[in-house]
């Protein structure tokens, strides 16, 4: 089936490896992703003030464009998913706001479309068993800590992504590609989001440090996430967390694409750098 792909700003800039590995994983699994012709930044955060209607214009336009093109949307950035899905819910349920958006954007759209995360497609459409069958490399039981953070899961009644207190989708995907998902308590906790960017105080990002330590203490060898902001904050922990406790941070699609046969370089795996330990364990280069 063909889907409209919404990469989001970060995947076109800092997180290119996330973009490349997402496209390649989808291709390997028979999911056709076609990037929307024109799209704007979703706004990164869903506006929580009821009168901040203007902030909904960009995600509304993307949703309307996909509907116009007759495709359902797919994204992998947790921020984009959160904003797009919540905007769609709002457009479906709040007539007043929808009317304002329709007038402003001049697109007649009432929330008929759908927004998917690639992981949801793997779970609900492809099936993790089928993903498993199509792997070309074994991840050799690499101990990976799946990190959900906030945006995929909450608010639970709007995101309906997975059980917000005990999500399993990343675990099941990782197990399917031959990794060993590590359970640790802070996998649904906040990474500190934009707090460190604003530098409100000379405070360290203790939230991200706690997450890193929690994953590390559980015996993980790497963390995977679906959020560039989470990835950034976790990487920034290096200044506060001793090297031994500091884990490499990867996008879920990097390990997925690697398992599906994409070469390590295209996957953004660096055998000589941050990912040395990971690469050694999974034996970079060998294809079954």
């Amino acid at each position: 089936m063909k889907y409209g792909y919404y990469p989001g700003c970060t995947l076109h800039q800092q997180a290119e490896e996330f973009d490349v590995t997402t496209r390649e994983s989808a291709r390997a699994l028979g999911i056709e992703l076609e990037e929307l012709d024109s799209w704007q930044c979703c706004g990164a955060v869903f506006p929580l003030a009821t009168d901040a209607v203007i902030n909904l214009a960009a995600p509304f336009r993307a949703l309307a464009a996909a509907y116009e093109a007759g495709v359902e949307l797919v994204t992998v950035c947790a921020g984009c998913l959160n904003v797009l899905r919540r905007t769609n819910n709002l457009v479906q349920n709040d007539d007043e706001t929808r009317d304002k958006l329709v007038d402003f954007v001049e697109e007649d759209y009432a929330g008929e479309g759908r927004v998917h995360h690639l992981l949801e497609l793997l779970r609900d459409e492809v099936g993790f068993e089928s993903v498993s069958e199509r792997t070309k490399r074994d991840l050799n039981g690499l101990r990976i800590a799946p990190y959900y953070g906030c945006l995929l899961l909450r608010p639970p009644d709007e995101m309906e992504f997975d059980d917000a207190e005990d999500p399993q989708i990343l675990e099941n995907m990782l197990a399917g590609i031959g990794a060993h998902p590590v359970s640790y308590p802070l996998r649904m906790d906040c990474c500190g989001a934009y707090l460190p960017i604003g530098e409100l105080e000379e405070r360290r990002n203790r939230a991200a440090v706690a997450v890193m330590r929690s994953a590390s203490a559980a015996g993980a060898e790497a963390i995977v996430t679906s959020c560039p902001l989470c990835a950034h904050n976790l990487e920034q922990c290096a200044q506060d967390v001793p090297g031994a406790e500091m884990l490499p941070v990867l996008y879920f699609s990097q390990v997925l694409a690697y398992a599906l046969g994409l070469d390590a370089d295209s996957c953004g795996l660096e055998p000589d750098g941050l990912h040395a330990g990971v690469c050694e364990k999974i034996g970079i280069g060998e294809v079954k």
Binding site: A15, G43, P47, G79, I197
Partner: peptide, 17 residues
């Protein structure tokens, strides 16, 4: 910061602060 941080982080920061 603009070179290092993801766009998502900078846009969120602007929206919130």
């Amino acid at each position: 910061l603009f070179a290092a941080a993801p766009q998502q982080a900078i846009v969120s920061c602007y929206r919130k602060y």
